[in-house]
Design a protein around this nucleic acid. Sequence first.
DNA 1: TTGTATGCGTTATCAT
DNA 2: ATGATAACGCATACAA
Lengths: 331, 331
Amino acid sequence: MTGATIRDVARRAAVSVASVSRALNGLSSVHPDTRARVLAAAEALGYVPHAGARSLSLARTHAIGVVMPDLHGEFFSEVIRGLAGAASARGYHLILSNIDEGEDHMAAALRAMRGRVDGLVAMAPHVAPPAFAALLPPRLPTVTINTPDYAGGPALRVDNRGGAAAVARHFVTIGRKRFAHIAGPAINADALERRDGFAAALPAGTPIAMAEGDFTEAGGARAMAELLTTDAAIDAVFVANDMMALGALQTLRDAGRRIPQDVAVAGFDDVPLARYVSLTTLRVNMADLGGRAATRLIDALEGEGEGAGEVPTADLIVPPLIVRGTTVMEP
Amino acid sequence: MTGATIRDVARRAAVSVASVSRALNGLSSVHPDTRARVLAAAEALGYVPHAGARSLSLARTHAIGVVMPDLHGEFFSEVIRGLAGAASARGYHLILSNIDEGEDHMAAALRAMRGRVDGLVAMAPHVAPPAFAALLPPRLPTVTINTPDYAGGPALRVDNRGGAAAVARHFVTIGRKRFAHIAGPAINADALERRDGFAAALPAGTPIAMAEGDFTEAGGARAMAELLTTDAAIDAVFVANDMMALGALQTLRDAGRRIPQDVAVAGFDDVPLARYVSLTTLRVNMADLGGRAATRLIDALEGEGEGAGEVPTADLIVPPLIVRGTTVMEP
DNA sequence: TTGTATGCGTTATCAT
DNA sequence: ATGATAACGCATACAA
């Protein structure tokens, strides 16, 4: 009931299991006749190697684990897509385990990966670095994506500060004077970096009206409404992500503000919707990030023992500023 | 280098591996003192059970495999999200393997699942049923999503015909007379069902101008342009999916047609963008579909041996028609 | 070239 | 309650 095993094939081909293994794995030292008999027997029995047993024997699973919170949906999906593509191209599987439900659940998910994967790709922008490092199974190669400086291995990060700074400079260039920022959750590392990067790139001492959202469209709308009551004179608002920016735009329009004449708005992420509403934003290609992460991890996994330079480099991916109709008039 | 094993723990706690296993898995028959010693030793060594070995011994992986093409992006992501949520809630992992690159690659991916998962969730709207069935590893419980009637197990399907029929009736209700349809790829089962369902629900003998797209926005635009040259008088077009509908809308507007006064347009899927462009469409909740699939599979996996009724039922999920501004004037 | 035997890490059976 | 040991399915030294 569990399918034919290598022993069944051996029996049918009248050879030893060792020969079956060798024949099926294409080892050179096996007589053509033997190989033929084995192949025929395997075919006849519909034999499929048992990946689990193979992994145990080889100490190699050809799978990479992915741990990340289900946070703002768009990302999750894009990263997975990139990961899956790159992994699949190199013959690796992806093992998913989302970690919404609290830190203990997350610890369990992380532990369950041992013996199941060769390495890990982790994304946890909301957890304190030390806690996260402690949760990781020891000796499991890991590359992190947008995770607050975890020093345990290669890391891929979006240049949040640089992106935010580009927006600040853009606002100044188009002559804006009264700035506002709608930030993401304070526990989110990306959110903090975007806020700080924006502030740091404006002329020293420039006041910035602040509000905090939750990365959702509704949250952005609420935050914008809040800003309008406290600082009605603003003429440029940088929103920490696109979804909130969409909400903010709606609130502004409902309040009779013209975009971009009265108020310029910029987001972050460049979600598919951004193009449709002509939102100025920073393009972060999450699929590409996922692909890079997978490639990087697999390179490390397969290069074990040769490369002397196992330097845990941290790549900073700079998101380009996409200028659209919410900051400048369109033709 | 491979982490502490159960033997290391046994040695440190000065007990047998059997006792360690029992203590760690919470079996009753183990002395409190022993359990305490084992727990302490495991903690001290940072012991994490090896999932692979555990699976081999238990003949249970607590993982479910997911095979699907990367087709039109939105879906992929949503289904995965639903699957991951439901699986995670029941303590199962997800193993991904996308199967873009040809049928042989797909066969390999399918085979590689054996010994790695307890069951499969498969979605392959583009493959002929017999071929697909042949590829599946034998004796691996499988639930399919939107896969042309594969008779081997439970199936979840979107009611494409019913949804398309609802659009047809809606068009008639709002007084349209000259119909067109932009279909998806002819090898796609969903596409065919949508086309046929639309045609069947219109009054008998009603002519329908036809064009074929590739499920992409650009493809929809091209197909629409084509229709305009051959059948300029159309006043209602049903597009096989939302992405193509977006392209079609653009083409229509560029051609000076007013929506919905001159031409009514309806899509299929209700992607996030649909709400923004106020596109009338059918809402198919792919995340929900994924969740149901996972739940269904796990129920089957864990109910083995008890339920006499292992009937491979096929659920038809009916997508509701969401009427928006591309078919009726908005307030 | 081929076969025998051992190990991968864990659980479960059977004694004790 | 505990320990020795045989599976689980496969790969691979080591012999032959």
